[in-house]
Simulated assay, not measured.
Amino acid sequence: MNSIPSTPHDIRLVVLDMAGTTVADGGLVERAFAAAAAELGVEPGSEDHAHKLDYVRATMGESKISVFRHLFGEESRAQRANAAFEKAYGELVDGGLVAEVPGARAAIEELRADGRTVVLTTGFARVTQDAILAALGWRDLVPLTLCPADAGGRGRPYPDMVLAAFLRTGAADGVRQTAVAGDTSYDMLSGARAGAGVVAGVLTGAHDGEALRTAGATHVLGSVTELPALLRGSDQA
């Protein structure tokens, strides 16, 4: 873990990613992508399929419709791919194939017990986010959850969801009192661009420590379970 910054942040708002950070989905994104690719006629095992899958992996954390717009161009094709992806992912969630990252719920409860407001964010559509929350029994765990459509339609790496959390909760006096945590480079870029005081990468998901630091992580943690202690130290810095 990186050392705690020397300047105090008094973090009041914590914006957490879901899949890969607080939610373990066991590679369901790639499985759901296969369904989306098949819907658009991409041949499994082909060079085109491999190229598109590489892009999906590289852009983990981004709004999924944005990913499909890049991959398939024409809006109607992108929307077809996105609908197939969300349907397939939702069916996998309903099949019991998601779980919390070990200790994630307890960490969220710990953050809230420390007086911080916690918001959960995702690059998935609202219907998929709601399915994940229901599957985990997390509907009432935090006061606010956000998907890209809730923040004007732009997902990560834009700062919009972080700024929407800041504006809607009123929990912090300034964005520097916000901490962002996620497992992808896009999570880090989103937090850094929003001006968050703490941008913490976690190693339970898509990207490694080097990628997270390059994208703007102020800290790299083994998992989200280390975040409450980090923020207590930041309060005292």
Rank of each mutant, 00 (worst) to 15 (best):
V42E: 10
A84R: 15
G174E: 11
F33E: 08
G209Q: 09
Y186K: 02
Q129V: 00
V198L: 08
G95P: 11
V93L: 13
S223Q: 03
H51L: 04
P8N: 01
A192S: 05
I108N: 14
L120T: 03
L120P: 03
G45C: 05
A19G: 05
A215N: 07
H70Q: 03
E86T: 13
D25H: 01
G182M: 06
K64N: 09
R57D: 13
T22W: 06
G152P: 07
R57K: 15
L71A: 06
V101F: 14
D173E: 15
E39A: 09
V93H: 08
D150K: 15
E91C: 05
E210I: 09
D94V: 01
V142C: 09
A106I: 02
D140L: 04
A165G: 04
L53V: 12
D173C: 15
L133D: 13
A113F: 13
L16G: 00
G233D: 11
T169N: 10
R139T: 05
I4S: 13
V101P: 02
D48Q: 10
D17Y: 12
A192P: 00
K87G: 05
G123A: 11
T218I: 02
Q79A: 14
P148Y: 15
A217D: 00
M18K: 04
G182S: 02
M1G: 14
A58H: 14
A50I: 01
F72C: 13
R176P: 01
A237S: 07
A107R: 00
P44Y: 11
V42P: 02
R31F: 12
D160A: 06
L141E: 10
S63R: 13
R139Y: 10
S234E: 06
A83R: 09
D54R: 11
A211E: 07
A58N: 10
I132H: 02
L40S: 06
Y186A: 00
F72V: 07
A237G: 05
L167D: 15
P148H: 14
F33A: 11
R105Y: 03
N82Y: 01
P44Q: 01
G191F: 09
K52F: 07
L13M: 07
R31G: 14
I11W: 09
T184L: 01
T169Q: 07
A135R: 15
D94E: 14
V175T: 13
L146N: 06
F72W: 03
P5E: 09
L189K: 04
T184I: 03
A149D: 13
R139K: 13
E110L: 05
H51Q: 12
D235S: 05
I4F: 10
R116Q: 13
G170N: 05
A171G: 03
L146W: 08
A34M: 09
L221N: 03
L133Q: 04
M60Y: 05
L189Y: 07
T225Q: 04
A106F: 06
